[in-house]
Design a protein around this nucleic acid. Structure first.
Length: 493
DNA sequence: TGCCTCTTCGG
DNA sequence: CGAAGAGGC
């Protein structure tokens, strides 16, 4: 009997619960992964991250090979055909007298992903094949952090308090690399793998994002040793390397959140808050990540890009031809607001954007340009190497004030003030907006400065004061209408 | 994980 | 006339 491990967004052998469990059963272990590029495109994910996934698979395949576990690669198209392909694999193994005892995998929480897993599980039950599912994307599984009324939290700080209280029950050292039984892989099984496995597309090294899981461990170690202590003070300044930059690795599952949290918790004297301010602050960001994942599971409409606050669906997002030109300018980093353009160009150049800039840029699109947050969400999703539905949606709905615990609609960032505050030396702007690099630092923040225009930098596509008022009016009116609708019944009485 | 405007007060 | 605080959005 064979233990099958289906790899998805868990591109690692360390602290991998599904793999670990499979290896403990004293049976041969076979790994399989499905390349679902068509599904990937339907989900609006981009090429750069796709290549990182391929790169990760090369490392994973090598690691698994060292453990005497073959990794079978299937070319599947979409999720539905991936289920068919895994079924076919199981049948092929059975017909060669190598029946699968259990299918093991780590859960993904998005709607299509869960449908896929349910489809497979139904079939496995009919065939008397075990299905072992594991939680590895959150330290505390979604659904386990609830209010006294057993309801999901909609606000971050009470969620965090409840999460803290549960942490002890789930906190544990990362699982070691498993040890599969020796000589478990028969020549017959090797033959089937050779016969069925598609060629893995070539790895193309991305100099910015290392997809080898041991390199990611080193990155975590380096961050915690040398930079985490300054995190609270540097994390908001995009010009300095204050953040861990591990988001891409978490999104691909090159490292587990449990390993990140356990290690940080340990380095912080075994506490989540208090201790060293930098570590506590980083831990807090990891809990935000948990919060957004828990929300996505508790409110599956989020997967379909519905606003968390239904009344905000009435905001009159601009759709004119002018708005279209504005959107294009935003995408290309040509809005005439230096900090916004620097942010967008960082995304296009590197596949990543600093978190402070994500807030500034998202707020500029949704408030100053009054363009639907879903368009920005889709653009980020297309270009971010750390693209992740829960975190990206959570961040966008926060900025757009449509979210569970979003910024109040009237808290509109002033891009110039933010720029002066968080890039005071104009260092980050200079790095990504070449037109402004030669200006004195203090002249790099303001849109429409004379020097800007001499350097062929775009004039601002919208004026701040006007745009701010337009957004305030639009939201105020939408909220008032929603309120009226709500009190209508009592008026009729 | 604001920003703006208005007001007051000391220089 | 700049700083600092209050209150509204």
């Amino acid at each position: 009997m064979i233990q099958l491990v289906w790899f998805r967004m868990d591109m690692r052998v360390h602290d991998n619960p599904a793999l670990f469990h499979a290896c403990q059963q004293g049976q041969p272990v076979l790994a399989v992964t499905c390349l679902t590029q068509q599904q990937w495109q339907q989900h609006g994910l981009g090429q750069r991250k796709w290549q990182l996934l391929i790169n990760s698979l090369h490392g994973l395949q090598q690691h698994l090979h060292d453990l005497n576990i073959p990794l079978l690669v299937l070319n599947s198209g979409d999720f539905h055909s991936s289920v068919d392909d895994v079924k076919a694999l199981i049948q092929r193994l059975a017909s060669s007298d190598m029946p699968v005892s259990d299918v093991n995998f780590n859960l993904e929480y998005e709607v299509n992903e869960r449908k896929r897993d349910i489809e497979l599980q139904r079939w496995c039950q009919q065939q008397n094949i075990g299905v072992n599912k594991f939680h590895d994307q959150c330290v505390i599984p979604p659904g386990e952090v609830v209010t006294r009324q057993q309801q999901p939290f909609k606000v971050y700080s009470p969620f965090k308090r409840a999460w803290w209280q549960q942490f002890d029950r789930y906190n544990q050292a990362p699982l070691a690399i498993p040890q599969p039984p020796v000589d478990a892989i028969t020549p017959d099984l090797q033959d089937i793998v050779k016969e069925l496995s598609a060629a893995l597309p070539a790895a193309e090294n991305d100099p910015l994002w290392n997809c080898h899981e041991l390199a990611v461990h080193e990155q975590l170690e380096e961050f915690l040793q040398h930079r985490a202590r300054y995190y609270a003070d540097t994390r908001d300044f995009p010009a300095s390397p204050g953040t861990s930059s591990l988001s891409y690795a978490l999104s691909l599952g090159l490292i587990s959140p449990r390993q990140c949290l356990y290690t940080a918790w340990q380095k912080n004297g075994c506490q989540l808050s208090g201790g060293k301010a930098g570590l506590a602050s980083w831990i807090n960001e990891l809990i935000w990540r948990e919060f957004y994942r828990h929300l996505l599971v508790a409110f599956p409409q989020l997967c379909k890009h519905h606003a968390f606050k239904p009344e905000t669906e009435g905001v009159p997002w601009r759709t004119s031809a002018a708005a279209e030109r504005d959107f294009q300018a935003w995408c290309e980093g040509k809005t005439g607001y230096p900090i916004v353009d620097a942010a967008q160009r960082q995304l296009l150049d590197t596949g990543w954007m600093h978190n402070r800039l994500r807030m500034i840029s998202a707020m500029f699109l949704t408030k100053h340009l009054l363009i639907d947050w879903r368009r920005g969400e889709a653009f980020f999703n297309q270009h971010l190497v750390d693209a992740d539905l829960a975190s990206n949606n959570g961040g966008w709905q926060w900025s757009a004030s449509t979210g569970a615990d979003g910024a109040p609609y009237f808290r509109i960032f002033n891009p110039t003030t933010q720029s002066q505050r968080f890039d005071s030396a104009g260092e980050f702007i200079a790095r990504y907006v070449a037109e402004l690099a030669t200006l004195p630092a203090k002249s790099r923040h303001q849109p429409n400065s004379l020097e800007c225009q001499q350097n062929q930098y775009p004039t601002a596509i919208v004026e701040h004061k006007f745009a701010r008022q337009r957004a305030l009016d639009a939201f105020k009116q939408t909220m008032a209408e929603a309120n009226n609708d709500a009190v209508q019944p009592s008026l009729i009485e």
